[in-house]
């Protein structure tokens, strides 16, 4: 699982604007980076670009892991603003789909639901879950399909203190096993040993 992530002089343009310029960082296995900055500073944009969803105008993103054949998108989990939860399916059905679809392990689903505190709601339709519970359900993706790099966009949104501490535990375990976490946030996540990068208007 040990991975390394190197981003070198990334430049990202959106809508004829340079959103990010000369962004470079280097993360070793087990390291976590927090992106801080005002609205519009390009935090989400950077995460989406690292996930391979946005083209970069120049610069490189390199991921070193055991298997050089695997494309970048299959090394990363992006937890964005939307949870990707299908409300017509039950919590378990959602998680099993992610496991199978993302090349993970469906048998890990019950444990994963317990880990995010949804063990009791496994068979409830996702439509009956609250926003925070849907958020927790979305986080099971991180567990049921093991991937080296987690990109978390405002992971604290809608989570209560219990949810936050469970997320903290997940992140801790992930880092101990050599994973990398990059999170964009406005609030203090309370994770230890963080690298920080401030994005924002230089004008």
């Amino acid at each position: 699982m040990a991975v390394r992530l190197t981003a070198e002089s990334l430049r990202i343009e959106r809508n004829e604007r340079v959103v990010l310029n000369a962004v470079s960082f280097n993360l070793q296995a087990g390291e976590a980076l927090v992106l801080i900055g005002p609205n519009g500073a390009g935090k989400s944009t950077l995460l989406r670009a690292l996930a391979g969803l946005l083209p970069v105008a120049s610069g490189t993103v390199q991921i070193e892991s055991g298997d050089p054949e695997t494309p970048r998108a299959e090394h990363v989990h992006l937890i964005g603003h939307a949870d990707g939860v299908k409300t017509a399916l039950s919590a378990t059905e959602n998680a099993v789909f992610w496991a199978e679809f993302l090349g993970g392990d469906p048998s890990a689903v019950p444990e994963a639901l317990k880990a995010v505190g949804l063990g009791h709601a496994a068979d409830l339709p996702a439509a009956s879950l609250s926003a925070g519970q849907k958020r927790r359900l979305g986080l099971t993706r991180l567990i049921v399909a093991r991937r080296g790099i987690w990109l978390l966009d405002e992971p604290a949104t809608a989570l209560d203190t219990d949810g936050l501490s469970r997320l903290g535990t997940l992140v801790e375990t992930h880092r101990e096993t050599g994973g990398i976490v990059i999170a964009a946030t406005h609030s203090d996540l309370g994770w230890p040993n963080l690298k920080r990068m401030v994005l924002g208007s230089a004008v």
């Binding site: 996930a51 998108a73 992006l78 603003h81 939307a82 949870d83 939860v85 299908k86 679809f101 993302l102």
Partner: peptide
Amino acid sequence: AEDGSLDLLFSAP
């Protein structure tokens, strides 16, 4: 696209 699961299509193997 509305619920965010479209992004998953891009990261599937």
